[in-house]
Design a binder for these strands. Sequence first.
RNA 1: GGGGGUGUAGCUCAAUUGGUUAGAGCGCUGCCCUGUCACGGCAGAGGUUACGGGUUCGAGUCCCGCCACUCCCGCCA
Length: 628
Amino acid sequence: MDGLDGAQPPTSPFENAQQIDTLCPDFRMKRTHHCNELRASDAGRAVILTGWVHSRRDLGGVLFIDLRDREGRTQTVFDPSDLPPAVFDVASKLHAESVIEIEGKVRVRPEGTRNIKILSGEVEVQVQSMTVLNPSAILPFQVDDPEVANKVNEELRLQYRYLDLRRPEMMRNLRLRSKVAIATRSYMDDQGFLEVETPTLFKSTPEGAREFLVPNRREPGTFYALPQSPQQFKQILMVSGVERYFQLARCYRDEDLRADRQPEFTQVDIEMSFIEREDIYVLIEGLLKRVWKTALNMDIPTPFKRISFEEALNRWGIDKPDTRFGMELVDFTEDFRGSKFGVFGNCVAGGGVVKAMNAKGLAGATQGQIETMTEYAKSFGAKGLAFIKVENGEWKSPIVKFFNEAEKAALTEKLGIEQGDLILFAADQWLNACEILGKIRLYCAEVLKAQGKLVIDPTRFDFLWVVEFPLLGFDREMNRWYSSHHPFTAPVAEDIPFLKTDPKKVRGQHYDIVVNGVELGGGSIRIHQPDVQKTIFEELLQIPAEETQLRFGYMLEAFKYGAPPHGGIALGFDRLCAILCGTTSIRDVIAFPKTAKGTCIMTSSPSAVTARQLRDLHIEVKAAKKEV
RNA sequence: GGGGGUGUAGCUCAAUUGGUUAGAGCGCUGCCCUGUCACGGCAGAGGUUACGGGUUCGAGUCCCGCCACUCCCGCCA
């Protein structure tokens, strides 16, 4: 494939369509060429084109129709002196998006009438005959003008998704997604992986995300569940000796939606035997290299940077940092130890930390913006948000009067304070303080971007591995430990002794792949020893032995018969495609996505079912919303 | 479950402090036009202001409710 020049992600709708010619030349059926194929060298050729009426320009004595198919468009000319009047008449009344077939002769356009916007713009087809294959009704929204179509309400676009997908921009996304899927398969095949399909009618495993349940007609009261991921099956495949497995797996989570979350989504699911973390890093770096080359013709540098969970929190206040801009968090715990400013001094004395960040150039933040940031702080349990506006040569802040000279000097130096800066503080327990400023940092970046003070190169991709996550977190309400990733994650070997003595110290062999602040995927080396797995389930997660047996018995059993050491990863395929397409909504890279309430507007699903269907399933609905 | 935003012609949007017959561009219909490419020109049709209440002499505008879409928090092992 001829890629794009340089490092530009595609911006114009036709860019990729022009580059990736995928209509097989030996399989054209009714047509002789597609609509992005004819060039000056084809002049004089008799051709048949098929497609949609993209736009029609009727000049009275001559009529132009831009004929569009998946690959692009070609101008066709209807000249009444050359055509039966009936044909001209029908053509002049065609609605946009009608499907036609034309037969005609290619000619170079007259001097001064070339269209440099389209690749076929040097030529046109002089129509000799036309068949209307299917007239179109008047459209609910315009498809031909990208400026207009881009702004159309998404609800309407989803209702008429088939029209929305005809837009070159959406077709480009579908095409890119297909290319990335195929590149992934090809790369994984090169690396010796087997693509294995796992069941989507699975068993309910109530940890983690809420599941979609599927009633079992044969035994009342029992249910399948749609899998949140093929996790257990892929580990069983390792026990089976597959050694290298992958799958573009459809997964389901019955949780609330977001721009980057759908109830059903696709992940590139991977598992390998006899490996260490390093092997996964190399594999995924190679995969992403291939994908970026295929989709954007970009060479991304590898290996990726690695950052520990602790460092990520310390510097960016989040475990999926966007490192494309600065405003890093700075620690002032020691500078404020014993400070006369009670909020900071007491916090440090109580084992907390003081952190600050410099929002460069944000001293002019509005009251509303400060309030929004304060709300973020409060949502983490802070009482308020301390800040300093550096304006007109002075530090404007209700708290500055409590600072001594040494404290001020430390701030000035470590934060590089200058005119126009906004300094923000968090004093709290370590994790909380980091997370507060992490949220605020991202908010400040949005504000600065909107003001044009922060510009991020759209072709920049900051990949990094976040590693050394804590294996467990503690749930105060339930008074027990929970897995920060999932219960199959192996502890770092040297930390295993702490499992029974000091669980919070135990690091997991877990890794996340992050790009531009987006969590692209995560995985881990798994526990392959049944006794360690049993300890995690029963002693730390406090799942009763009988329940462990019911839910995971088959896995523990399988692990008894020679489970190789193994590990894997899953990448969010929709998110991957969204990043490559330069969109923040995965709905733009899914052909038929659901709305924020999980409905499909086009098909009106979910929908009520008949009483008979319910009876067969032994289900009684207590609060029916609608009749069928 | 909670918070924010949006909803006016087929589409994208206006509509001053609550005040005449709710406007514009595109699309649509008709007419004119032989080099356009978002063609152009003229004319025309098109509205339960999402929906249901309320306040008022008078509501697109204010209040209450409700629905849909959207963004975020919770949630997403």
